[in-house]
Nucleic acid binder design. Structure first.
Length: 477
RNA sequence: CGGGGCGUGGCGUAGCUUGGUAGCGCGCUUGAAUGGGGUUCAAGAGGUCGCAAGUUCAAAUCUUGUCGCCCCGACCA
Protein backbone atom coordinates (compact mmCIF):
# COMPACT_ATOMS: atom_id res chain seq x y z
CA UNK A 1 0.00 0.00 0.00
CA UNK A 2 2.87 2.30 0.76
CA UNK A 3 4.32 1.64 -2.67
CA UNK A 4 1.06 2.55 -4.35
CA UNK A 5 1.02 5.94 -2.71
CA UNK A 6 4.57 6.57 -3.84
CA UNK A 7 3.91 5.89 -7.47
CA UNK A 8 0.88 8.13 -7.51
CA UNK A 9 3.03 11.00 -6.26
CA UNK A 10 5.26 11.02 -9.34
CA UNK A 11 4.04 10.13 -12.82
CA UNK A 12 6.09 7.23 -14.17
CA UNK A 13 8.67 8.01 -16.84
CA UNK A 14 7.22 5.44 -19.16
CA UNK A 15 3.72 6.84 -18.94
CA UNK A 16 4.64 10.47 -19.63
CA UNK A 17 8.26 11.61 -19.50
CA UNK A 18 7.44 15.32 -19.63
CA UNK A 19 5.01 15.03 -16.76
CA UNK A 20 7.51 12.91 -14.83
CA UNK A 21 10.06 15.71 -15.23
CA UNK A 22 7.64 18.37 -14.01
CA UNK A 23 6.61 16.18 -11.06
CA UNK A 24 10.22 15.62 -10.04
CA UNK A 25 11.26 19.27 -10.08
CA UNK A 26 8.21 20.15 -8.03
CA UNK A 27 8.17 17.22 -5.60
CA UNK A 28 11.90 17.37 -4.95
CA UNK A 29 11.30 21.06 -4.21
CA UNK A 30 13.97 22.21 -6.63
CA UNK A 31 11.86 25.05 -7.99
CA UNK A 32 8.56 26.76 -7.75
CA UNK A 33 6.77 28.69 -10.45
CA UNK A 34 6.71 32.41 -9.84
CA UNK A 35 4.11 35.02 -10.62
CA UNK A 36 6.28 36.22 -13.51
CA UNK A 37 5.67 34.38 -16.74
CA UNK A 38 8.40 31.95 -17.64
CA UNK A 39 10.55 32.73 -14.61
CA UNK A 40 11.19 30.13 -11.96
CA UNK A 41 12.05 30.34 -8.28
CA UNK A 42 15.04 28.24 -7.31
CA UNK A 43 14.21 26.83 -3.89
CA UNK A 44 16.87 25.79 -1.37
CA UNK A 45 17.15 22.23 -2.73
CA UNK A 46 17.59 23.47 -6.26
CA UNK A 47 19.78 26.44 -5.50
CA UNK A 48 22.13 24.33 -3.36
CA UNK A 49 22.79 22.11 -6.38
CA UNK A 50 23.59 25.21 -8.43
CA UNK A 51 25.91 26.49 -5.69
CA UNK A 52 27.83 23.22 -5.78
CA UNK A 53 28.04 23.31 -9.56
CA UNK A 54 29.21 26.91 -9.43
CA UNK A 55 31.86 26.30 -6.78
CA UNK A 56 33.27 23.31 -8.60
CA UNK A 57 33.31 24.97 -12.02
CA UNK A 58 34.68 28.21 -10.63
CA UNK A 59 37.58 26.35 -9.05
CA UNK A 60 38.33 24.66 -12.37
CA UNK A 61 38.16 27.94 -14.30
CA UNK A 62 40.53 29.66 -11.91
CA UNK A 63 42.96 26.77 -12.19
CA UNK A 64 43.34 27.75 -15.86
CA UNK A 65 44.04 31.39 -15.02
CA UNK A 66 40.53 32.81 -15.37
CA UNK A 67 39.49 35.81 -13.23
CA UNK A 68 35.95 36.77 -12.24
CA UNK A 69 34.34 40.13 -12.99
CA UNK A 70 30.85 41.55 -12.94
CA UNK A 71 29.33 43.52 -15.79
CA UNK A 72 26.14 45.66 -15.88
CA UNK A 73 22.89 43.90 -16.70
CA UNK A 74 21.88 46.61 -19.23
CA UNK A 75 23.23 46.99 -22.73
CA UNK A 76 22.57 50.19 -24.72
CA UNK A 77 21.01 49.46 -28.09
CA UNK A 78 23.89 51.05 -29.99
CA UNK A 79 26.36 48.66 -28.39
CA UNK A 80 24.27 45.61 -29.15
CA UNK A 81 24.03 46.71 -32.78
CA UNK A 82 27.76 46.64 -33.41
CA UNK A 83 28.18 43.05 -34.59
CA UNK A 84 25.70 42.24 -37.33
CA UNK A 85 25.25 38.46 -36.96
CA UNK A 86 25.13 38.79 -33.21
CA UNK A 87 22.22 41.28 -33.23
CA UNK A 88 20.31 39.26 -35.76
CA UNK A 89 20.69 36.18 -33.61
CA UNK A 90 19.54 37.78 -30.37
CA UNK A 91 17.28 40.69 -31.31
CA UNK A 92 14.09 38.59 -31.47
CA UNK A 93 14.44 37.53 -27.86
CA UNK A 94 15.67 40.53 -25.91
CA UNK A 95 13.73 42.50 -23.30
CA UNK A 96 13.94 46.27 -23.63
CA UNK A 97 14.02 48.95 -20.97
CA UNK A 98 12.48 52.12 -22.37
CA UNK A 99 11.73 54.19 -19.26
CA UNK A 100 13.63 55.09 -16.12
CA UNK A 101 12.29 57.05 -13.19
CA UNK A 102 9.18 57.89 -15.19
CA UNK A 103 11.17 59.46 -18.03
CA UNK A 104 11.50 57.99 -21.47
CA UNK A 105 15.12 57.05 -22.13
CA UNK A 106 16.98 58.74 -24.97
CA UNK A 107 18.38 55.39 -25.96
CA UNK A 108 16.67 52.19 -24.97
CA UNK A 109 18.66 49.44 -23.29
CA UNK A 110 18.20 45.73 -23.38
CA UNK A 111 18.52 43.40 -20.44
CA UNK A 112 21.56 41.29 -21.35
CA UNK A 113 20.75 38.08 -23.23
CA UNK A 114 24.54 37.46 -23.12
CA UNK A 115 27.38 39.90 -22.58
CA UNK A 116 29.73 39.65 -25.56
CA UNK A 117 29.13 43.27 -26.47
CA UNK A 118 29.88 44.55 -22.97
CA UNK A 119 33.09 42.57 -22.74
CA UNK A 120 34.12 43.75 -26.18
CA UNK A 121 33.47 47.35 -25.19
CA UNK A 122 35.61 46.85 -22.09
CA UNK A 123 38.41 45.14 -23.99
CA UNK A 124 38.49 47.89 -26.58
CA UNK A 125 39.33 50.28 -23.72
CA UNK A 126 41.76 48.24 -21.66
CA UNK A 127 43.75 46.36 -24.30
CA UNK A 128 46.61 48.42 -25.79
CA UNK A 129 49.66 46.25 -25.99
CA UNK A 130 50.52 42.60 -26.47
CA UNK A 131 51.58 42.86 -22.81
CA UNK A 132 47.89 43.28 -21.85
CA UNK A 133 47.02 39.90 -23.31
CA UNK A 134 45.52 37.47 -22.78
CA UNK A 135 42.44 38.67 -20.91
CA UNK A 136 40.71 35.73 -19.26
CA UNK A 137 37.50 36.97 -17.69
CA UNK A 138 34.40 35.20 -16.47
CA UNK A 139 31.20 36.33 -14.83
CA UNK A 140 28.47 34.55 -12.88
CA UNK A 141 25.17 36.25 -13.53
CA UNK A 142 21.68 35.86 -14.85
CA UNK A 143 20.59 36.63 -18.39
CA UNK A 144 17.17 37.23 -19.92
CA UNK A 145 15.77 35.85 -23.15
CA UNK A 146 12.17 36.43 -24.09
CA UNK A 147 11.26 32.80 -24.74
CA UNK A 148 7.95 31.79 -26.20
CA UNK A 149 7.63 28.58 -24.27
CA UNK A 150 9.45 27.74 -21.08
CA UNK A 151 10.26 24.73 -18.92
CA UNK A 152 11.97 24.59 -15.53
CA UNK A 153 15.77 24.54 -15.91
CA UNK A 154 15.62 23.68 -19.62
CA UNK A 155 14.30 27.00 -20.82
CA UNK A 156 13.26 29.93 -18.67
CA UNK A 157 13.11 33.63 -19.47
CA UNK A 158 15.73 34.43 -16.88
CA UNK A 159 18.40 31.89 -16.03
CA UNK A 160 21.63 31.70 -14.07
CA UNK A 161 24.85 30.92 -15.85
CA UNK A 162 28.47 31.80 -16.21
CA UNK A 163 29.91 33.37 -19.31
CA UNK A 164 33.62 33.38 -19.91
CA UNK A 165 35.09 35.91 -22.33
CA UNK A 166 38.71 35.87 -23.37
CA UNK A 167 40.89 37.94 -25.67
CA UNK A 168 44.13 36.63 -27.16
CA UNK A 169 46.98 37.82 -29.32
CA UNK A 170 46.76 35.02 -31.85
CA UNK A 171 44.19 32.86 -33.57
CA UNK A 172 45.99 29.72 -32.39
CA UNK A 173 45.82 30.81 -28.78
CA UNK A 174 42.10 31.55 -29.06
CA UNK A 175 41.41 28.17 -30.62
CA UNK A 176 43.42 26.48 -27.90
CA UNK A 177 41.44 28.25 -25.20
CA UNK A 178 38.13 27.36 -26.87
CA UNK A 179 38.99 23.67 -26.79
CA UNK A 180 40.50 23.90 -23.33
CA UNK A 181 37.27 25.26 -21.85
CA UNK A 182 35.17 22.68 -23.67
CA UNK A 183 37.33 20.06 -22.00
CA UNK A 184 36.83 21.71 -18.61
CA UNK A 185 33.07 21.37 -19.12
CA UNK A 186 33.24 17.79 -20.33
CA UNK A 187 35.53 16.71 -17.47
CA UNK A 188 33.32 18.44 -14.94
CA UNK A 189 30.20 16.75 -16.30
CA UNK A 190 31.76 13.32 -16.29
CA UNK A 191 33.63 13.50 -13.00
CA UNK A 192 31.18 15.51 -10.92
CA UNK A 193 27.78 15.11 -12.54
CA UNK A 194 28.40 11.55 -13.75
CA UNK A 195 27.12 12.49 -17.21
CA UNK A 196 29.14 11.29 -20.20
CA UNK A 197 29.42 13.86 -22.97
CA UNK A 198 29.94 13.80 -26.69
CA UNK A 199 32.42 16.54 -27.57
CA UNK A 200 32.32 18.05 -31.00
CA UNK A 201 31.89 21.00 -33.28
CA UNK A 202 28.59 22.55 -34.32
CA UNK A 203 27.74 22.81 -37.99
CA UNK A 204 27.64 26.35 -39.42
CA UNK A 205 23.86 26.27 -39.26
CA UNK A 206 23.86 25.54 -35.52
CA UNK A 207 26.72 27.75 -34.41
CA UNK A 208 26.44 30.78 -32.13
CA UNK A 209 25.42 34.15 -33.57
CA UNK A 210 28.64 35.92 -34.51
CA UNK A 211 30.95 32.97 -33.86
CA UNK A 212 33.69 31.74 -36.12
CA UNK A 213 33.16 28.23 -34.76
CA UNK A 214 31.16 26.74 -31.90
CA UNK A 215 32.05 23.64 -29.92
CA UNK A 216 29.57 21.77 -27.80
CA UNK A 217 29.12 18.97 -25.33
CA UNK A 218 26.01 16.91 -25.93
CA UNK A 219 24.36 14.52 -23.49
CA UNK A 220 21.65 11.95 -24.00
CA UNK A 221 18.65 12.07 -21.68
CA UNK A 222 16.76 9.05 -20.41
CA UNK A 223 14.00 9.50 -22.97
CA UNK A 224 16.49 9.46 -25.84
CA UNK A 225 16.50 13.21 -26.47
CA UNK A 226 19.73 15.16 -26.65
CA UNK A 227 20.62 18.15 -24.49
CA UNK A 228 23.24 20.71 -25.43
CA UNK A 229 24.96 21.05 -22.09
CA UNK A 230 27.69 23.61 -22.60
CA UNK A 231 29.21 25.55 -25.45
CA UNK A 232 32.55 27.14 -26.23
CA UNK A 233 32.91 29.61 -29.09
CA UNK A 234 35.85 30.84 -31.07
CA UNK A 235 35.05 34.32 -32.41
CA UNK A 236 38.17 34.76 -34.44
CA UNK A 237 38.68 38.50 -34.84
CA UNK A 238 35.10 39.22 -35.95
CA UNK A 239 34.01 40.99 -32.78
CA UNK A 240 37.43 42.65 -32.48
CA UNK A 241 36.91 44.27 -35.87
CA UNK A 242 33.36 45.34 -35.06
CA UNK A 243 34.40 46.83 -31.71
CA UNK A 244 37.89 47.97 -32.65
CA UNK A 245 39.78 45.86 -30.15
CA UNK A 246 43.38 46.34 -31.25
CA UNK A 247 46.77 45.98 -29.64
CA UNK A 248 50.31 46.85 -30.65
CA UNK A 249 52.46 43.77 -31.17
CA UNK A 250 56.20 43.35 -30.60
CA UNK A 251 56.94 44.72 -34.07
CA UNK A 252 54.93 47.84 -33.22
CA UNK A 253 52.18 46.79 -35.63
CA UNK A 254 48.47 47.19 -34.86
CA UNK A 255 46.66 43.83 -34.59
CA UNK A 256 43.13 42.69 -33.80
CA UNK A 257 42.64 40.40 -30.82
CA UNK A 258 41.13 36.93 -31.17
CA UNK A 259 38.32 36.11 -28.78
CA UNK A 260 36.42 33.24 -27.22
CA UNK A 261 33.36 32.85 -25.05
CA UNK A 262 31.97 29.86 -23.23
CA UNK A 263 28.98 29.20 -21.03
CA UNK A 264 27.18 26.72 -18.86
CA UNK A 265 23.81 27.39 -17.28
CA UNK A 266 21.28 26.05 -14.78
CA UNK A 267 20.06 24.00 -17.72
CA UNK A 268 22.69 21.46 -16.70
CA UNK A 269 20.55 20.70 -13.66
CA UNK A 270 17.87 19.57 -16.10
CA UNK A 271 20.42 17.15 -17.49
CA UNK A 272 21.19 15.75 -14.04
CA UNK A 273 17.48 15.18 -13.50
CA UNK A 274 16.82 13.57 -16.88
CA UNK A 275 19.95 11.42 -16.99
CA UNK A 276 19.89 9.98 -13.47
CA UNK A 277 16.31 10.31 -12.21
CA UNK A 278 13.90 7.39 -11.83
CA UNK A 279 10.27 6.78 -10.97
CA UNK A 280 10.87 7.53 -7.30
CA UNK A 281 12.23 10.95 -8.17
CA UNK A 282 15.58 12.66 -8.30
CA UNK A 283 18.87 10.73 -8.09
CA UNK A 284 21.83 12.99 -7.34
CA UNK A 285 25.44 12.05 -8.00
CA UNK A 286 27.23 12.20 -4.62
CA UNK A 287 29.71 14.87 -5.68
CA UNK A 288 26.98 17.40 -6.43
CA UNK A 289 24.41 16.38 -3.80
CA UNK A 290 23.93 19.15 -1.22
CA UNK A 291 23.25 16.43 1.35
CA UNK A 292 25.08 13.19 0.61
CA UNK A 293 23.93 11.10 3.54
CA UNK A 294 20.74 11.38 5.57
CA UNK A 295 20.55 9.69 8.95
CA UNK A 296 17.08 8.42 9.81
CA UNK A 297 16.46 7.22 13.34
CA UNK A 298 13.96 4.40 13.84
CA UNK A 299 11.74 4.41 16.92
CA UNK A 300 13.43 7.64 17.89
CA UNK A 301 11.49 8.12 21.12
CA UNK A 302 13.07 5.04 22.59
CA UNK A 303 15.91 6.01 24.95
CA UNK A 304 19.30 6.42 23.38
CA UNK A 305 18.23 6.30 19.74
CA UNK A 306 18.30 10.01 18.96
CA UNK A 307 21.54 10.45 20.83
CA UNK A 308 23.14 7.68 18.81
CA UNK A 309 21.73 9.00 15.52
CA UNK A 310 22.98 12.46 16.30
CA UNK A 311 26.43 11.13 17.20
CA UNK A 312 26.47 9.22 13.92
CA UNK A 313 25.60 12.36 12.00
CA UNK A 314 28.43 14.26 13.68
CA UNK A 315 30.93 11.53 12.85
CA UNK A 316 29.78 11.41 9.24
CA UNK A 317 29.98 15.20 8.90
CA UNK A 318 33.73 14.89 9.20
CA UNK A 319 33.91 12.91 5.94
CA UNK A 320 30.88 14.04 3.92
CA UNK A 321 27.83 16.31 3.82
CA UNK A 322 25.55 14.58 6.30
CA UNK A 323 22.10 15.36 7.65
CA UNK A 324 19.81 14.01 10.34
CA UNK A 325 16.03 13.99 10.23
CA UNK A 326 14.79 13.89 13.80
CA UNK A 327 11.33 15.24 12.93
CA UNK A 328 8.40 13.19 14.18
CA UNK A 329 7.42 11.97 10.71
CA UNK A 330 7.38 8.19 10.41
CA UNK A 331 10.47 6.40 9.07
CA UNK A 332 8.58 5.25 5.98
CA UNK A 333 7.65 8.81 5.16
CA UNK A 334 11.26 9.93 5.52
CA UNK A 335 12.50 7.11 3.31
CA UNK A 336 10.23 8.18 0.48
CA UNK A 337 10.89 11.86 0.97
CA UNK A 338 14.66 11.61 0.71
CA UNK A 339 14.43 9.24 -2.21
CA UNK A 340 12.33 11.83 -4.00
CA UNK A 341 15.01 14.43 -3.23
CA UNK A 342 17.73 12.21 -4.58
CA UNK A 343 19.97 11.96 -1.52
CA UNK A 344 22.58 9.32 -2.41
CA UNK A 345 22.80 7.38 0.86
CA UNK A 346 20.39 6.80 3.71
CA UNK A 347 21.52 5.57 7.11
CA UNK A 348 18.91 3.73 9.19
CA UNK A 349 19.59 3.34 12.87
CA UNK A 350 17.21 1.87 15.45
CA UNK A 351 17.25 0.11 18.83
CA UNK A 352 18.09 -3.28 17.31
CA UNK A 353 21.06 -1.85 15.41
CA UNK A 354 22.40 -0.01 18.41
CA UNK A 355 22.31 -3.20 20.42
CA UNK A 356 24.18 -5.01 17.64
CA UNK A 357 26.65 -2.15 17.08
CA UNK A 358 25.62 -1.67 13.47
CA UNK A 359 23.45 0.38 11.12
CA UNK A 360 21.92 0.03 7.66
CA UNK A 361 23.08 1.89 4.56
CA UNK A 362 20.65 2.18 1.65
CA UNK A 363 21.78 3.31 -1.80
CA UNK A 364 19.50 5.69 -3.65
CA UNK A 365 20.68 4.64 -7.10
CA UNK A 366 20.09 0.89 -6.76
CA UNK A 367 17.89 0.62 -3.66
CA UNK A 368 20.37 -1.89 -2.24
CA UNK A 369 20.65 -2.08 1.55
CA UNK A 370 23.70 -3.24 3.45
CA UNK A 371 24.42 -3.68 7.14
CA UNK A 372 27.68 -2.21 8.39
CA UNK A 373 29.45 -1.99 11.74
CA UNK A 374 29.18 1.40 13.47
CA UNK A 375 32.92 1.31 14.16
CA UNK A 376 33.84 1.60 10.48
CA UNK A 377 30.98 3.83 9.37
CA UNK A 378 33.17 6.69 8.07
CA UNK A 379 35.14 4.39 5.77
CA UNK A 380 32.07 2.48 4.63
CA UNK A 381 30.17 5.63 3.71
CA UNK A 382 33.12 7.24 1.97
CA UNK A 383 33.67 4.14 -0.11
CA UNK A 384 29.98 3.76 -0.87
CA UNK A 385 29.71 7.37 -2.10
CA UNK A 386 32.63 6.76 -4.47
CA UNK A 387 31.07 3.55 -5.70
CA UNK A 388 27.74 5.24 -6.35
CA UNK A 389 29.44 8.08 -8.22
CA UNK A 390 31.32 5.64 -10.46
CA UNK A 391 28.32 3.37 -11.00
CA UNK A 392 26.11 6.28 -12.00
CA UNK A 393 28.57 7.37 -14.68
CA UNK A 394 28.89 3.80 -15.94
CA UNK A 395 25.12 3.38 -16.11
CA UNK A 396 24.63 6.67 -17.92
CA UNK A 397 27.34 5.73 -20.41
CA UNK A 398 25.79 2.30 -20.97
CA UNK A 399 22.39 3.88 -21.56
CA UNK A 400 23.85 6.34 -24.03
CA UNK A 401 25.75 3.66 -25.91
CA UNK A 402 22.70 1.46 -26.04
CA UNK A 403 20.73 4.33 -27.55
CA UNK A 404 23.31 5.36 -30.10
CA UNK A 405 22.60 4.08 -33.58
CA UNK A 406 24.16 4.34 -37.00
CA UNK A 407 22.30 5.07 -40.20
CA UNK A 408 23.56 4.58 -43.74
CA UNK A 409 20.42 5.68 -45.55
CA UNK A 410 17.66 8.21 -45.14
CA UNK A 411 15.11 5.44 -44.62
CA UNK A 412 17.20 3.98 -41.86
CA UNK A 413 17.73 7.40 -40.29
CA UNK A 414 14.02 8.12 -40.40
CA UNK A 415 13.07 4.79 -38.93
CA UNK A 416 15.49 5.19 -36.03
CA UNK A 417 14.34 8.77 -35.41
CA UNK A 418 10.73 7.69 -35.19
CA UNK A 419 11.01 4.35 -33.46
CA UNK A 420 14.05 4.35 -31.20
CA UNK A 421 14.93 7.80 -29.86
CA UNK A 422 18.63 8.38 -29.28
CA UNK A 423 21.77 9.58 -30.99
CA UNK A 424 22.04 8.70 -34.65
CA UNK A 425 25.48 8.63 -36.21
CA UNK A 426 25.47 9.28 -39.94
CA UNK A 427 27.83 10.58 -42.61
CA UNK A 428 27.38 14.05 -44.08
CA UNK A 429 28.70 15.81 -47.17
CA UNK A 430 28.90 19.19 -45.44
CA UNK A 431 26.12 20.77 -47.47
CA UNK A 432 23.56 22.76 -45.50
CA UNK A 433 20.82 21.63 -47.88
CA UNK A 434 21.19 18.06 -46.68
CA UNK A 435 21.21 19.21 -43.08
CA UNK A 436 17.96 21.11 -43.63
CA UNK A 437 16.34 18.23 -45.43
CA UNK A 438 17.07 15.80 -42.62
CA UNK A 439 15.64 18.25 -40.12
CA UNK A 440 12.49 18.84 -42.12
CA UNK A 441 11.79 15.20 -42.84
CA UNK A 442 12.56 13.62 -39.49
CA UNK A 443 12.70 16.60 -37.09
CA UNK A 444 16.14 15.64 -35.86
CA UNK A 445 18.90 18.25 -35.82
CA UNK A 446 22.62 17.92 -36.14
CA UNK A 447 23.95 17.80 -32.59
CA UNK A 448 27.62 17.96 -33.47
CA UNK A 449 30.49 16.74 -35.58
CA UNK A 450 32.29 14.72 -32.90
CA UNK A 451 36.03 14.97 -32.31
CA UNK A 452 36.06 11.19 -32.29
CA UNK A 453 35.24 10.52 -35.91
CA UNK A 454 34.29 7.15 -37.42
CA UNK A 455 34.06 6.28 -41.07
CA UNK A 456 30.65 4.64 -41.22
CA UNK A 457 30.33 5.02 -44.95
CA UNK A 458 31.94 7.05 -47.73
CA UNK A 459 28.65 8.62 -48.89
CA UNK A 460 26.45 11.34 -47.39
CA UNK A 461 23.39 9.74 -45.81
CA UNK A 462 21.16 12.26 -47.56
CA UNK A 463 22.45 13.08 -51.05
CA UNK A 464 24.85 10.16 -51.59
CA UNK A 465 27.73 12.45 -52.54
CA UNK A 466 31.16 12.04 -51.01
CA UNK A 467 30.95 12.30 -47.21
CA UNK A 468 33.15 14.70 -45.27
CA UNK A 469 32.30 14.06 -41.63
CA UNK A 470 30.31 11.90 -39.30
CA UNK A 471 27.56 13.81 -37.51
CA UNK A 472 25.53 12.97 -34.42
CA UNK A 473 21.85 13.60 -35.07
CA UNK A 474 19.04 13.65 -32.57
CA UNK A 475 15.91 15.23 -31.22
CA UNK A 476 16.95 17.94 -28.84
CA UNK A 477 15.57 19.83 -25.87
C1' C B 1 3.49 31.88 -32.65
C1' G B 2 0.15 27.49 -34.23
C1' G B 3 -2.60 22.86 -32.05
C1' G B 4 -4.52 20.58 -27.53
C1' G B 5 -5.66 20.60 -22.17
C1' C B 6 -6.46 23.11 -17.47
C1' G B 7 -7.42 27.25 -13.56
C1' U B 8 -12.50 25.51 -7.27
C1' G B 9 -8.89 25.96 0.84
C1' G B 10 -1.48 24.63 0.84
C1' C B 11 -1.81 20.26 -2.99
C1' G B 12 -5.04 16.95 -5.93
C1' U B 13 -9.96 17.08 -7.36
C1' A B 14 -16.06 16.61 -7.47
C1' G B 15 -19.85 19.92 -8.76
C1' C B 16 -20.72 23.04 -14.51
C1' U B 17 -24.39 19.73 -19.58
C1' U B 18 -29.94 20.99 -16.65
C1' G B 19 -27.97 28.48 -12.49
C1' G B 20 -30.44 28.31 -6.13
C1' U B 21 -24.46 30.19 -2.64
C1' A B 22 -19.31 24.41 -2.27
C1' G B 23 -18.14 18.46 -1.17
C1' C B 24 -14.19 14.75 -0.90
C1' G B 25 -8.96 12.93 -0.38
C1' C B 26 -4.08 14.41 1.03
C1' G B 27 -1.64 18.02 3.86
C1' C B 28 -1.96 21.43 8.30
C1' U B 29 -3.15 22.17 14.03
C1' U B 30 -4.06 19.60 18.90
C1' G B 31 -4.10 14.99 21.76
C1' A B 32 -3.10 9.77 22.26
C1' A B 33 -1.18 5.16 20.75
C1' U B 34 2.68 3.87 17.10
C1' G B 35 7.49 3.72 14.66
C1' G B 36 12.64 -1.35 10.20
C1' G B 37 8.89 1.57 3.44
C1' G B 38 4.37 7.59 2.92
C1' U B 39 1.00 4.37 10.70
C1' U B 40 -3.79 4.64 13.30
C1' C B 41 -7.79 6.91 16.00
C1' A B 42 -10.22 11.34 17.78
C1' A B 43 -11.14 16.57 17.70
C1' G B 44 -10.29 21.16 14.91
C1' A B 45 -8.73 25.34 11.46
C1' G B 46 -8.83 26.73 6.44
C1' G B 47 -12.38 28.61 0.13
C1' U B 48 -14.94 36.48 -2.33
C1' C B 49 -14.54 28.92 -7.19
C1' G B 50 -7.74 32.87 -11.80
C1' C B 51 -9.34 38.04 -12.97
C1' A B 52 -12.94 41.54 -15.31
C1' A B 53 -17.37 42.77 -17.54
C1' G B 54 -22.27 40.99 -19.04
C1' U B 55 -27.14 38.03 -18.73
C1' U B 56 -30.36 36.96 -14.33
C1' C B 57 -34.41 37.80 -8.63
C1' A B 58 -29.97 34.59 -8.21
C1' A B 59 -23.53 32.74 -11.42
C1' A B 60 -18.29 27.98 -9.55
C1' U B 61 -22.16 26.79 -13.25
C1' C B 62 -24.38 30.63 -19.02
C1' U B 63 -21.88 34.68 -22.50
C1' U B 64 -17.71 37.75 -23.79
C1' G B 65 -13.00 39.35 -22.78
C1' U B 66 -8.47 38.86 -20.26
C1' C B 67 -4.35 36.69 -17.44
C1' G B 68 -1.68 32.44 -16.22
C1' C B 69 -0.08 27.32 -16.24
C1' C B 70 0.86 22.39 -18.54
C1' C B 71 1.62 19.32 -22.99
C1' C B 72 2.78 18.77 -28.39
C1' G B 73 5.03 21.38 -32.65
C1' A B 74 8.19 25.80 -35.05
C1' C B 75 12.72 29.01 -32.47
C1' C B 76 16.65 29.13 -28.61
C1' A B 77 21.42 27.69 -23.43
Amino acid sequence: MAKEKMVTAITSMKEDFAQWYTDVVKKAELIDYSSIRGCMILRPNGYAIWENIRNELDRRFKATGVENVYMPMFIPESLLQKEKDHVEGFAPEVAWVTHGGGEKLQERMCVRPTSETLFCDLYSNIVQSYRDLPKLYNQWCSVVRWEKTTRPFLRSMEFLWQEGHTAHATAEEAEERTIQMLNVYADFCEQVLAIPMIKGKKTDKEKFAGAHSTYTIEALMHDGKALQSGTSHNFGDGFAQAFGIQYTDKENKLQYVHQTSWGMSTRIIGAVIMVHGDDSGLVLPPRIAPTQVMVIPIAQKKPGVLEKASELKERLSAVCRAGLDDSDKTPGWKFSEYEMRGIPVRVEIGPKDIEAGQCILARRDTGEKITVALDSIEDEVTRLLDTIQADMLARAAAHRDKHTYTAKSMEELGRIANETPGFIKAMWCGDEECENKIKEEYSVTSRCMPFEQEEIDDKCVCCGKKAKTMVYWGKAY
